[in-house]
Amino acid sequence: MNKRCTECRATVQVPLPELDKKAVYLDQFMFSIIYNVEHDGKLPKGHEAFAKEAYALLRRCVLLQQIFLPHSDIHHDETTVFHSPTDLRGLYELFGGDVSVTDSRDVELLQNIQFAKAYFEGIEPKISFDIDEITDRRRNEWLPDMHVDVRADYSQFADHIRRVRGEVHDALKHLANTWLEKKVTFAGVLEREFSEIGPTKIQAFAKWIEDVSNPDPSDPLALFESCGSPIYREYKELCRILEDLGYDEDEQAIKIAQFWHWERQREIPHQKISSYLFAAVARRVVMGEKKIVDRGLMNDVRTIATYAPYVDALFIDKRCAAILKEETLLAELEYKARIFSLSDPDEFLEYLREIEVQTPDDVRKYAAMIYGIE
């Protein structure tokens, strides 16, 4: 930090204290609440006081350099169909500390590749859950006192996002009806989720080949999406690994298919967490819970399965928070994040208060100088 005398203009450089910011991931609903607090909008009934205090505490902890609120591709898609997307995007970038996490599909790919290397080399899989490995910039830098907002407009993608979300919702509803008709069990759905990993990847790759060979002329984004398809990207990365290990091109497809059917695929964190979540959802559907399969469910599952192992805290909807507290999931899932929701808003406020109180004195002093907080 530069300090300058107001009289003689002499300047000295002062080293700032080192930081260790916590990653607090807020779901889209929570960012919408923050937006409404800033714009005097409608707050969730019965939680008006919580919304205002959470807003103040979050902002204070961010400016005290104790936390950052990462945004992701999941936020980006949900923001694109929001009524004021540009303003909301600008808010969560500025308000949260302007650090994003790697796209969810890229995090999944990272974990898949780490397991693939272990499989191909015959060693034990190891995965690091260091948050710095999935952030787009160094989280422990002091925030700049100026912010540049590009205010990009992604509205041209809104209809496509809505259409895809609708298709996914329809597929989930059909799946839920199947669960209900067959009276499935948690254990049965969990085992099916695990056993279908390999066949599903093979089917997805076959569909990718078909889509590239016969693109839909009525959908200008179809070919673009095919080129960035997660299954294609994974296949190419696996081919590269096998090439480096000395496998001929005609051997690579066989080795990849074998890896996709490897029993330990079920241990890959995003696979394991999402499978348990779907099994728990299926159990609730069979028990008669009718509203659990909604348009936001898939994004909620992706958020938890992808980021819970890396971030310090997750604020998610009440439904998913309750599922994660079920005995089976508590006993068999491991992830770093503390889980919060509107089911117990005071718990989240207390978490933020503890972080604020534990701010080192030297950090607090310089934060007051730079950002004007008391």
Rank of each mutant, 00 (worst) to 15 (best):
M30S: 13
P85Y: 00
L57K: 08
E243H: 13
R139E: 07
P269R: 07
T79C: 13
R240Y: 07
N299M: 13
A282I: 08
K272T: 07
E374G: 06
A368N: 10
V301Q: 00
A171Y: 03
F115S: 09
V24R: 04
Y119H: 15
C320W: 04
A222C: 11
L58A: 04
Q111S: 13
R319Q: 12
Y351I: 01
A56I: 01
Q65V: 01
F31T: 06
E133G: 14
L57V: 04
V212N: 08
D248Q: 11
E167R: 09
A305W: 00
K173I: 13
E210F: 01
G90V: 07
K291T: 15
G90M: 03
A187T: 10
R138W: 06
E326R: 06
D294Q: 07
P70K: 02
L190S: 05
F68M: 00
K182F: 06
V101E: 07
E334C: 06
F82L: 05
D361L: 03
E263G: 05
E93N: 11
A54G: 02
K182N: 15
E7T: 11
V311A: 06
H261W: 04
R233N: 12
R162G: 04
I373G: 01
I74A: 07
S226W: 03
V150L: 13
V184R: 05
K182A: 11
D346F: 00
T328L: 11
D153V: 04
L69F: 01
D98F: 05
K272M: 14
Y335P: 01
E327S: 14
A10P: 03
T303S: 15
V37K: 00
S104F: 02
L63M: 08
C8G: 06
H160P: 00
E334F: 08
V281N: 08
P17G: 06
R9E: 15
D20P: 00
